[in-house]
Computed example of a mutant assay.
Amino acid sequence: MLTFTVCTLQIRHLNNKKHCNTEKLVYQYHYTNWPDYGTPDHPLPVLNFIKKSSAANPAEAGPIVVYCSAGVGRTVTYIVLDAILKQIQQKYIVNVFSFMRHIRSRRNFLVQTEEQYISLHDVLMEAIASRETNLLAEQVEELKNYTPYLEQQYKNIIQFQPKDIHVASARKQVNSIKNRGAIFPIESSRVHLTPKSGDDGNNYINAFWLNGFNKYK
C-alpha cells in the first residue's frame, strides 16, 4: 500500500529426525511513512493502518506483537491508539492522560516526545469526527441516495483548515500570483521545482502530489 506493507510469513518447525507438518502463518503489517522520533504527516493514514492491522488479528490468536526501533515511541503510540479506539467503541470515553500515566508506571519513556503525545489526540479527534468511512463496494450503492450521511461527511471535509506552517510557501507574497483561488498545496506534498539561486520562490508551483493506491501520483 502507499503507507504500509503487508508480509505473510510461513513458519514451520523442522528438526533432524522428522518433518513436522505444523505450520503457522504470521502477518506483518509494516508502516513505512512514520519517521523515528517523529509523527505521521496526517492522522488518516495511520488511523486506517491501525484499524486494518488490528482487525486482521482474530480474537483467538492472542495479542499483537508491536515493535519499532526502541519500542517506546512509535510502538506505544500504536498501542495507545489501538486501546483507546476500542475504549471509545465499547465505553464512549476518552482519557489519554490516565492511560499514558498507567502504562508509564510499567515502563519509562513510553511515547517519547511531546509531538507524539499531541499526535495521539489528533488521530483520536479524526477518528471521532469522521467515524467509520471505510465502506464495502456494495454499501456505496446503498448510501448514494442517503444525503444526510454524505452532507455530514462533506461538512467535515470543508471544515478542515491546515496550519499556517503547512502552507508557508503558498502564502508567500512572491508566490501569490501563482496560486489558483484558495486551494494551496501543503508543504509535505507539494511539487518542488529545481531552485535557482538568488530568486526567492522559484521552486514553487501551485501543484501537489496525490496519494494513489500504492504510490504517489
Rank of each mutant, 00 (worst) to 15 (best):
Y154H: 14
P162V: 01
V94H: 10
I186R: 15
K91C: 03
K196E: 14
T77L: 15
P40E: 00
N203Y: 05
S98W: 00
K52C: 07
Y117P: 05
F99A: 11
A170I: 03
K51P: 00
R131S: 15
V72R: 08
T133G: 05
T133H: 12
F97T: 09
S54K: 12
L14E: 06
D200H: 05
P148K: 04
Q159P: 00
T39L: 01
A170L: 10
R12C: 05
Y37S: 08
P148Y: 03
L44Y: 11
C68A: 05
H192W: 07
I186T: 14
K163A: 13
T113W: 05
V26W: 12
Q159Y: 06
R180N: 05
Y154M: 15
L14S: 09
Y149E: 09
P63M: 06
R190H: 09
E138A: 10
R171I: 01
L2V: 02
P58C: 01
S189K: 10
D200T: 08
L124F: 00
C20M: 04
E141P: 02
D82I: 02
Y216N: 14
N108P: 09
L47P: 05
F99T: 13
I158N: 07
S176C: 06
E114K: 13
F97S: 10
I84F: 08
Q87E: 15
L25Q: 14
V140Q: 13
T113D: 04
Q159E: 06
K51E: 05
K86P: 05
I205N: 02
Y216V: 15
A61E: 11
L81F: 06
R106S: 12
L193W: 11
K91R: 15
S54W: 02
L143N: 08
F97P: 00
S130A: 09
V94M: 06
V191M: 10
K24C: 11
S176F: 04
A83L: 12
Q112W: 04
S169F: 06
R104E: 04
D82Y: 01
L193E: 12
H19F: 09
Q173V: 02
G181N: 03
P35Q: 04
Q28F: 01
G201N: 10
P43E: 03
V191T: 08
N21C: 01
M100L: 15
R131G: 15
S119T: 01
D41V: 07
G73D: 08
L135C: 04
R190C: 04
H13I: 04
L9V: 13
L9P: 03
V140T: 13
V66N: 10
L44R: 14
F213T: 13
T5I: 11
I79V: 15
P63K: 04
E138I: 08
N33P: 00
F97L: 08
V80S: 07
E132T: 07
K215C: 12
G71Y: 05
S130L: 11
I177L: 09
